[in-house]
Lab assay of single mutants.
Amino acid sequence: KRPMNAFMVWAKDERRKILQAFPDMHNSNISKILGSRWKAMTNLEKQPYYEEQARLSKQHLEKYPDYK
């Protein structure tokens, strides 16, 4: 399994927040909201998630050095 990218790292927690506020919302609508919010964020706001992506990628490479 591939490591999560920056968007997926961010969306994991954001999806939970949306589901808590709107428990009956369909997944497709949640995904649209998440995509819009991510696009509206600045690079500075996204930076911590890119850093986490890099950490996860490094960890994955160490754990699975032959992964293609």
Score class of each variant (00 low, 15 high):
60 H>W: 09
37 R>G: 04
4 M>K: 13
31 S>D: 15
27 N>H: 06
46 K>H: 01
4 M>I: 07
35 G>I: 13
47 Q>H: 07
4 M>S: 13
21 A>E: 15
1 K>R: 09
16 R>D: 11
43 N>Y: 07
5 N>V: 03
64 Y>W: 10
16 R>N: 12
37 R>E: 05
57 S>H: 10
32 K>R: 08
5 N>D: 14
36 S>L: 09
26 H>M: 09
37 R>Y: 01
45 E>L: 05
31 S>V: 11
49 Y>F: 09
36 S>H: 10
53 Q>T: 10
27 N>W: 13
15 R>H: 02
33 I>Q: 04
7 F>Q: 03
55 R>A: 07
35 G>W: 10
53 Q>F: 10
31 S>G: 05
27 N>E: 15
63 K>N: 09
25 M>I: 05
27 N>Y: 09
2 R>S: 13
1 K>E: 15
64 Y>T: 15
59 Q>A: 13
61 L>R: 13
1 K>T: 10
37 R>D: 02
53 Q>Y: 14
53 Q>P: 04
49 Y>T: 04
18 I>R: 00
61 L>W: 09
24 D>M: 06
50 Y>Q: 04
36 S>A: 13
5 N>S: 13
2 R>T: 14
32 K>A: 13
5 N>G: 07
58 K>E: 14
6 A>I: 02
51 E>P: 00
21 A>W: 06
53 Q>L: 14
15 R>V: 08
30 I>W: 01
12 K>W: 02
60 H>C: 12
19 L>R: 12
54 A>R: 11
45 E>M: 05
1 K>H: 06
24 D>E: 11
41 M>C: 01
29 N>C: 14
36 S>D: 05
52 E>I: 02
64 Y>G: 13
32 K>G: 05
43 N>E: 14
66 D>A: 08
52 E>Q: 06
1 K>F: 08
64 Y>P: 14
10 W>C: 00
19 L>M: 13
47 Q>R: 11
47 Q>F: 05
23 P>N: 04
50 Y>C: 05
17 K>Q: 06
13 D>E: 06
25 M>C: 03
27 N>V: 13
45 E>Q: 09
32 K>W: 05
57 S>V: 12
57 S>E: 15
37 R>Q: 08
32 K>Q: 07
57 S>G: 09
26 H>L: 12
41 M>E: 00
64 Y>C: 13
61 L>V: 14
23 P>W: 00
4 M>F: 03
23 P>I: 01
35 G>Y: 15
24 D>I: 04
33 I>W: 07
14 E>D: 00
59 Q>E: 13
51 E>Q: 12
41 M>Q: 00
20 Q>Y: 03
66 D>C: 08
53 Q>V: 15
8 M>D: 15
3 P>W: 09
14 E>A: 10
49 Y>R: 03
15 R>S: 08
48 P>Y: 05
20 Q>L: 08
51 E>I: 15
1 K>V: 06
26 H>R: 12
6 A>M: 01
43 N>C: 09
26 H>G: 13
28 S>L: 11
27 N>K: 13
64 Y>K: 12
27 N>D: 14
52 E>N: 04
61 L>T: 13
37 R>N: 08
17 K>D: 01
15 R>G: 06
5 N>M: 03
44 L>R: 10
55 R>D: 02
50 Y>R: 06
47 Q>E: 07
47 Q>I: 08
48 P>K: 05
65 P>F: 02
60 H>P: 11
38 W>A: 00
10 W>A: 01
56 L>N: 10
28 S>M: 09
36 S>T: 13
64 Y>D: 15
2 R>L: 11
16 R>W: 09
19 L>K: 13
9 V>A: 06
52 E>V: 06
24 D>A: 05
57 S>R: 11
21 A>I: 04
35 G>M: 15
29 N>S: 12
35 G>S: 15
27 N>S: 14
35 G>V: 14
39 K>P: 00
18 I>Q: 01
67 Y>C: 15
31 S>M: 10
68 K>S: 14
68 K>E: 11
17 K>H: 06
8 M>R: 12
29 N>T: 15
16 R>F: 06
21 A>T: 12
17 K>R: 07
66 D>R: 09
14 E>L: 10
29 N>D: 14
16 R>M: 08
55 R>W: 06
6 A>C: 00
59 Q>F: 08
25 M>V: 05
25 M>P: 01
11 A>K: 09
37 R>S: 04
43 N>S: 10
7 F>M: 03
4 M>R: 11
58 K>I: 10
36 S>F: 04
18 I>A: 00
42 T>A: 07
21 A>C: 05
11 A>I: 01
22 F>S: 14
50 Y>G: 03
10 W>K: 01
59 Q>S: 12
60 H>M: 11
58 K>G: 13
26 H>E: 15
16 R>I: 13
28 S>R: 12
60 H>G: 14
4 M>L: 06
58 K>H: 08
60 H>L: 07
3 P>A: 09
24 D>W: 06
61 L>H: 14
5 N>Y: 14
35 G>Q: 15
65 P>L: 07
3 P>F: 06
19 L>V: 11
33 I>F: 03
64 Y>L: 13
36 S>V: 12
66 D>M: 11
53 Q>G: 10
67 Y>S: 14
37 R>P: 01
17 K>L: 05
26 H>T: 13
44 L>V: 12
2 R>C: 10
18 I>C: 01
7 F>G: 01
46 K>G: 01
2 R>K: 08
38 W>Y: 01
43 N>A: 13
53 Q>E: 15
48 P>V: 07
28 S>A: 13
44 L>K: 12
23 P>Y: 00
12 K>M: 11
53 Q>R: 04
28 S>C: 11
22 F>C: 13
7 F>A: 00
7 F>P: 01
13 D>A: 01
2 R>F: 13
24 D>P: 00
32 K>H: 09
5 N>K: 03
39 K>D: 08
35 G>N: 15
55 R>I: 06
24 D>N: 07
33 I>S: 02
18 I>V: 07
16 R>Y: 05
41 M>A: 02
20 Q>S: 11
18 I>W: 02
28 S>D: 15
16 R>Q: 15
63 K>A: 13
26 H>I: 07
51 E>M: 02
33 I>R: 01
54 A>Q: 13
4 M>T: 14
59 Q>L: 09
54 A>Y: 04
37 R>K: 10
12 K>D: 08
20 Q>G: 04
68 K>R: 10
59 Q>I: 13
66 D>F: 04
6 A>Q: 02
55 R>Q: 08
67 Y>G: 15
36 S>I: 07
3 P>R: 11
4 M>C: 04
22 F>R: 11
7 F>H: 01
